[in-house]
Amino acid sequence: MSRLLAIDTIYLEPAAAEYPRGREILDRFPNARRIEVASHWNIPELHGNEGSAEDWLRIKRSTLVLGVKKGLTMRPNGRSAHFIAPSSSNGCAMACAYCYVPRRKGYANPITLFANTEAIGRAIARHAARQGPLPAPDQIDERAVVYDIGENGDLSVDALVCDSVRDLVGVFRGLPTAKASFATKFVNRDLLSYDPQGRTRLRMSLMPEGVAKVVDVRTSPMAERIAALDDFVRAGYEVHVNFSPVILYEGWEADWRTLFRQIDAAVSPATRAQLRAEIIFLTHNAALHAVNLRWHPKAETLLWRPDIQETKRSEGGMENLRYRSGWKGRWLARFKALLAEELPACGVRYAF
């Protein structure tokens, strides 16, 4: 087991233990204390407990939630993917200071794994069959209908615990008109054996190392992520990069230029030929800011910049902080120009 996880407590929806995947996960941690709960969404001592902020990292490492995914619908997206698939997990063992999931679910938010992943796979396959081939190339893909299968967690970390990710990669291997996609900040080399056959897009999240050391808590080092790009291409993945989040501070342009040069020096011609990028500028939140001040205040010196941020209501109805619209467009244009100078072969699929 990775340094990320030493599970000693499992919050358990009883129905999850009736599934083979649920039993697999429970058998993986036979000595863990089990606490039955009515719903993985409603665990007051985790999600509603402000006192857990001080135990943020311990809870991430030691606690697992096991539930059953209730809704199996596909949500239209149109940005990074055509559809958001039902998640096989929610929450994460890593602790990125800007993560949006705690804004919705609350406080430490460790990994929740869903036991009914076979049902998730079947729902995706049925939906893909109804969609058929992609009518025309678009910003998301040239040929396939793309499903984001990891919206609410990091599947590379989930794969340390069970075979859900392996199974989902296998589902897409058999879907000739569809493709899976997920972003990750963790290099799990077990995924190299999954044989995706070009039907899964792995989006490696990257940012300047100095910033990552502050805000990307418990993730793989940037050099390790960059070094893994060629390996995942050779293993049959389509590999893209997420420049996310872009955080503005004095000297950000020089730091990103350095990162682009590091990528260019590290990747093979085969990786460079298929490399595409997503660019996502930071979105922050006042409630998350308040929690971060209690466990990681240093991060907030980078994330909380009301002098250059403004409030904006999200699609989900939350009031978030984003860089001021008039300036953000200029900063985004500058970012794209830097990328074009240093990594001209890397096209931009999506920028926000």
Results as ranks from 00 to 15, higher is better:
65 V>M: 05
52 S>H: 04
59 I>N: 01
52 S>Y: 03
46 L>W: 05
46 L>V: 12
63 T>W: 00
62 S>N: 15
45 E>S: 09
56 W>C: 05
67 G>R: 15
57 L>Q: 05
44 P>S: 13
52 S>Q: 03
52 S>N: 04
47 H>K: 09
52 S>A: 15
46 L>P: 01
62 S>L: 00
41 W>P: 02
47 H>P: 04
50 E>S: 12
45 E>R: 11
46 L>Q: 03
45 E>Q: 14
43 I>F: 08
43 I>E: 09
66 L>S: 07
44 P>H: 13
47 H>Y: 14
54 E>D: 07
45 E>T: 13
43 I>G: 03
64 L>E: 01
50 E>M: 11
58 R>S: 06
65 V>I: 15
50 E>Y: 14
55 D>Q: 14
44 P>Q: 14
60 K>G: 03
53 A>R: 09
52 S>F: 00
53 A>L: 12
55 D>W: 03
63 T>S: 05
55 D>S: 10
63 T>H: 04
42 N>T: 05
55 D>P: 00
63 T>E: 03
57 L>G: 03
51 G>T: 13
65 V>A: 03
58 R>T: 07
48 G>T: 05
69 K>C: 00
48 G>E: 12
51 G>A: 15
51 G>V: 09
63 T>F: 05
68 V>Y: 09
61 R>H: 06
48 G>N: 13
45 E>W: 11
66 L>C: 04
53 A>K: 13
70 K>M: 07
43 I>P: 03
63 T>N: 03
50 E>G: 13
67 G>Q: 10
48 G>M: 07
50 E>W: 08
50 E>P: 08
61 R>F: 07
